[in-house]
């Protein structure tokens, strides 16, 4: 059943490399939050109510509502251009993304670690690699934040795939940490925009020997 969510998650990764508009990135991040909830729900059905509520909070509330709303606000504040520039043409990005997904699935079928759900490991791995790739090809720091969010989603998938259940307290601490981290990164994006009048990464190159 969770394959439906996993495959859809893979499709969102392709769409990330296809789309070039900031708004669509934010919608996709929101969609990924819902998909993560689906995957977590199917795989962690046997857990207690408290933990279920926590996962609901983590995925639906934070990942697909709070963070996208925050990103929307940032987008308005920074008057981001609709289209983001990239180093690699979208055409090649799609090819690379497809091979990343295909490769991580094929690789995972060879991974033989007990207690590891390789199907979730595969998509988590693809998400991690794609997040890093996304950061590398994009020229502005808002997109870098999006890439960081994709990586965080990948890590969430890893933790589901390993089936490790942390105490809710620890989970809460991690969630809080990540959330504050994203907020601070976002605030810094705003500061960069205010001081440099641009969020192009090329602006941030004064520090060198």
């Amino acid at each position: 059943m969770d394959y439906v969510f996993i495959i859809t998650f893979a499709v969102t990764l392709v769409l990330f490399s296809l789309f070039e508009r900031v708004k669509k990135f934010i919608y996709l991040i929101s969609l990924q939050g819902v998909l993560l909830f689906g995957i977590a729900l199917v795989n962690l059905l046997h857990i207690y109510t408290l933990e279920l509520v926590f996962i609901l909070l983590e995925t639906i509330v934070v990942k697909s509502v709070v963070i996208p709303l925050f990103l929307m606000k940032m987008m308005k504040h920074n008057q981001l251009k609709r289209v983001h520039e990239v180093h690699v043409p979208v055409f090649y990005s799609i090819v690379i993304t497809t091979f990343l997904i295909l490769g991580s699935f094929l690789l995972s079928s060879y991974v033989n670690i007990p207690k590891l759900h390789t199907r979730i490991f595969a998509i988590g791995f693809a998400s991690l690699l794609f997040g890093i790739y996304f950061i590398i090809i994009h020229k502005n720091i808002f997109s870098h934040l999006i890439g960081y969010l994709i990586i965080e989603n990948g890590i969430f998938l890893f933790s589901v795939g390993i089936g490790s259940q942390m105490p809710v307290l620890v989970g809460l601490a991690i969630l809080l940490d990540i959330l504050i981290g994203i907020l601070i990164i976002g605030i810094f994006v705003n500061k960069v925009k205010d001081r440099f009048n641009s969020i192009d990464i090329a602006m941030l190159s004064q520090l060198k020997d």
Partner: peptide
């Protein structure tokens, strides 16, 4: 992208 979807 359609080919990519087809691969998925």
């Amino acid at each position: 992208a359609m080919s990519s979807l087809a691969i998925i």
